[in-house]
Design a protein around this nucleic acid. Sequence first.
DNA 1: CCTAAAGTCTGTAGTCGCTACAGGGTCAAG
DNA 2: CTTGACCCTGTAGCGACTACAGACTTTAGG
Lengths: 130, 130
Amino acid sequence: MKIGQVSAASGCQIETIRYYERIGLLRAPSRTETGYRHYTCEDVDRLRFVTRGRALGFSLEEIASLLRLAEEDGLACDDVDRIARAHLADVERRVVDLQRIQAELERTITGCKGGERAQCSILGALRDAG
Amino acid sequence: MKIGQVSAASGCQIETIRYYERIGLLRAPSRTETGYRHYTCEDVDRLRFVTRGRALGFSLEEIASLLRLAEEDGLACDDVDRIARAHLADVERRVVDLQRIQAELERTITGCKGGERAQCSILGALRDAG
DNA sequence: CCTAAAGTCTGTAGTCGCTACAGGGTCAAG
DNA sequence: CTTGACCCTGTAGCGACTACAGACTTTAGG
């Protein structure tokens, strides 16, 4: 499989695949005589593992850990669990933060009745510490 | 006021203040004879406007627009409202995305009973497209 | 008055996760 | 045999900082 086909099969852009290889997240595939990358099904699986992890918001570093754990034999999944829980806690924090921002924006926008700048509550909210 | 005091007063790091100046978000302050930056209260207000905007998740570009609008005279605040609403829509999208991720992580973690890797539902969820 | 520490300066490079080139080589179809 | 699609490497850019190095200035204490 050439990189373009892998890209189509995974939904991951060609440059991104090469980037993952460059940073050592994906191992370098074999090459054709003329230097084209040649991928196996396992390579594609690994890439899909990565893209799926990204969709769940894991960092590439976390994914690298998970990949290593996934490819070791017969080890306890406590480490996997720990990574996932830490990540979940992080996601929860971000949700709360964003919701706070959301509420504050809604409140501020509602206060804005249009018209002159002097009455604009959005600019007011930004000017006054809150 | 020197930059360190501005930093303390605003909670914004010194390097960040200089960065904002470098990218043209904050105008360059006057200098002492020996080249130290010298800030006025208005400069500090502007910086607080920026940090407050950042806390609400506005991009620096959005904040630059808001700053311009805030400092023009007697203009309608429709533009301000438009920027804030667009930003709110963006925040809402991100909340939904993160909540989806959160739910999926919770589901996946709950499925993990510890023990051997072969039964680990987290790795399974990452391996299988979902 | 001298010294040491703390503060400030510029400029550059690093972070993360890509993305977008430039400038070349290779392959498949007509 | 040419055209166009594909692939290669290497580098630079994004946003929003952060972290130095290496030099200078100010301030406080002895």
